[in-house]
């Protein structure tokens, strides 16, 4: 069985000359389909840079990166945009919802932007996801009127909208209280178990990491454990 994601010898350098900073130093990692993985490491270890590259939002300076057998280093911006839309979901630390849109509109966005309109099917899928996140009563709420935990659950629903194979979560519970954090993690675990979606969760929180079946530790730009 081939891996879902494979990165080999990843190097990422920011800046040039004397100001050059090498964040990733030949990092290699493989993610199998259906994994629930925690990405651990101190600040500045390269976790966020790795997630950004895995999310096709940035290209590595060197090394290989493929997902579902597609070479993502060679792909152009248009191809990467479509690939990201179809196969990758994101959950950010600060939810990063569109503030002028309702919960449902935020969740339906990834499908609507690809299809050019908000179809009935997209709205139905969005409602189902929000109901599953316990937000059935908040579907048409402007996101500004939701609590931090609710916003993060909307963000999880949005990440799942296009049924991606991989969801990248960068400190998804970092801005939540313990109860809300546990609620979000419970939802992630449930979806991972029920739908086989692969999650890679960057976190500093050992308790959150312990909820994941696999832990990857990054230090000084390489996988250390």
């Amino acid at each position: 069985m081939s891996a879902l994601v494979e990165v080999e010898g990843l190097v990422k350098t920011f800046g040039s000359g004397e100001a050059a900073t090498r964040v990733l130093r030949g990092l290699s990692l493989t993610l199998q389909g259906g994994e629930l993985t925690a990405l651990l490491g101190p600040s500045g270890s390269g976790k966020s840079t790795l997630l950004t590259i895995l999310g096709t939002l940035m290209k590595p300076t060197a090394g290989s990166h493929s997902m579902l057998g597609t070479d993502l280093v060679a792909a152009d911006d248009r191809a990467l945009t479509l690939f990201r839309n179809l196969h990758i979901g994101f959950v950010f630390q600060f939810h990063n919802l569109l503030p002028d849109f309702t919960a449902l509109e935020n969740v339906a966005f990834p499908t609507a932007v690809r299809e050019g309109r908000e179809t009935a099917a997209a709205r139905t899928r969005g409602r189902e996801l929000l109901a599953r996140m316990g937000l059935a009563e908040r579907i048409d709420f402007p996101t500004a009127n939701l609590s931090g935990g609710q916003k993060q659950r909307v963000a999880v629903a949005r990440a799942l909208m296009n049924r991606p194979e991989l969801v990248l979560a960068d400190e998804p519970t970092g801005n939540l209280d313990r109860a809300a954090a546990m609620q979000v993690m419970a939802l992630i675990s449930e979806i991972n178990r029920d739908e086989g979606t692969t999650f890679l969760i960057s976190t500093h929180d050992e308790k959150i990491a312990s909820l994941c079946r696999r832990q990857v530790v990054v230090g000084d730009g390489v996988v250390t454990g």
Binding site: G55, L57, D77, R78, T81, L82, R84, N85, L86, F90, N96, L97, L98, P99, F109, P110, V113, R114, R158, N162
Partner: peptide
């Protein structure tokens, strides 16, 4: 920031 989110969610430059 919103433009960045849209791009991350799969919105192309043309959109």
């Amino acid at each position: 920031p919103e433009i960045g989110i849209m791009r991350a969610m799969g919105a192309g430059r043309g959109f």
